[in-house]
């Protein structure tokens, strides 16, 4: 069905307005990355400064171990994404479909882990990491990131499973699936939008974190991207050009991940499966 014109116009007006709001501050970051001489502020609205230069971008690749950090970050983020999705999709399923003892309490407890101000947990967390000998290891970082991302992912997956009718699994079980097979062949494909959000969120958690990374990683060659980027910032003498250029480059993989995943986000799958 075609929409009335005024609705179409309204849609585009809203979208365009927010696109402008979304990208303007980021264009400012681009602008900083193009300015010579590490100037964070400008006195006008121009995005491309008169004396623009790509020196900051060049320096990232030639003078800084940017690619090394990028590799580290990609590896950690990919690992966290895979484990996060795997653990959240199974746990969310249990919370959505089964009624078991301690279910509600556990769900709430999972939420509570997000409630303590993270800054206060840093000191004991470092003690823990140091005692377990996880300083300068990928494992320590991965466990922490997965644990950080999981509460949201588990709840999110549970919410998605809740929208999938139980009769589909029952049909599958009558068709000869075990509970596990029904989960794998029927439920999981239908929860794709949830999996995508979970994956995106896990990825972002690992991709942009630097406070814990600064505690765990004590060697520059082990740095993740955000940690490397934070190194461009020094009190009162930051290398804003590098900082901004790296921030822009850091966003590109996120955009790429989003692009590749977003088609799963928009294909409605459950539509038409059942009639309620």
């Amino acid at each position: 069905m075609r929409e009335p014109l005024r609705i179409t116009i309204l849609r585009h007006a809203v979208l365009l307005a927010f696109v402008a709001i979304s990208i303007y501050p980021v264009l400012n970051v681009v602008s900083i990355s193009l300015r010579p001489g590490d100037r964070l502020r400008s006195t006008d609205l121009a995005i491309i400064p008169a004396d623009w230069t790509l020196a900051s971008y060049a320096a990232l690749f030639t003078e800084q171990p940017f690619l090394r950090w990028l590799g580290n970050s990609l590896a950690v983020s990919a690992a966290v994404t895979v484990t996060g999705v795997a653990l959240a999709s199974t746990a969310g399923y249990a919370f959505s479909r089964f009624r078991f003892i301690g279910r509600r309490a556990t769900m709430l407890a999972i939420l509570t882990t997000q409630m303590f101000p993270a800054t206060m947990l840093l000191l004991p967390l470092y003690v823990l990491i140091a005692r377990l000998g996880l300083v300068d290891t990928w494992l320590g970082l991965m466990i922490f990131y997965t644990a950080t991302a999981l509460p949201f992912c588990v709840w999110q997956m549970k919410g998605f499973y809740d929208t999938i009718p139980a009769s589909l699994e029952e049909a599958a079980r009558i068709d000869g699936c075990t509970r596990g097979q029904a989960f794998w062949y029927v439920v999981l494909p239908l929860a794709t939008p949830g999996l995508v959000i979970t994956a995106l969120f896990s990825f972002m958690t690992a991709w942009s974190e630097y406070i814990v990374a600064a505690q765990v990683m004590q060697r520059e060659e082990m740095f993740t991207l955000p940690l490397g980027i934070k190194g461009f910032q020094a009190s009162l003498s930051s290398q804003w050009g590098l900082y901004a250029a790296a921030s822009i480059l850091v966003s590109l993989p996120v955009v790429a991940v989003f692009l590749s995943l977003s088609r799963f986000l928009v294909n409605g799958l459950t539509v038409g499966s059942v009639k309620e």
Partner: peptide, 26 residues
């Protein structure tokens, strides 16, 4: 009825492994 527990356990373990010590410490 071990299935649901088996499904939920790994995630719950990872979440709490990281948080319990700092939490009690605090």
């Amino acid at each position: 009825n071990p299935t649901p527990y088996a499904f939920a356990f790994p995630a719950v373990l990872v979440i709490f492994a990281v948080i319990v010590f700092p939490f009690v410490w605090n």
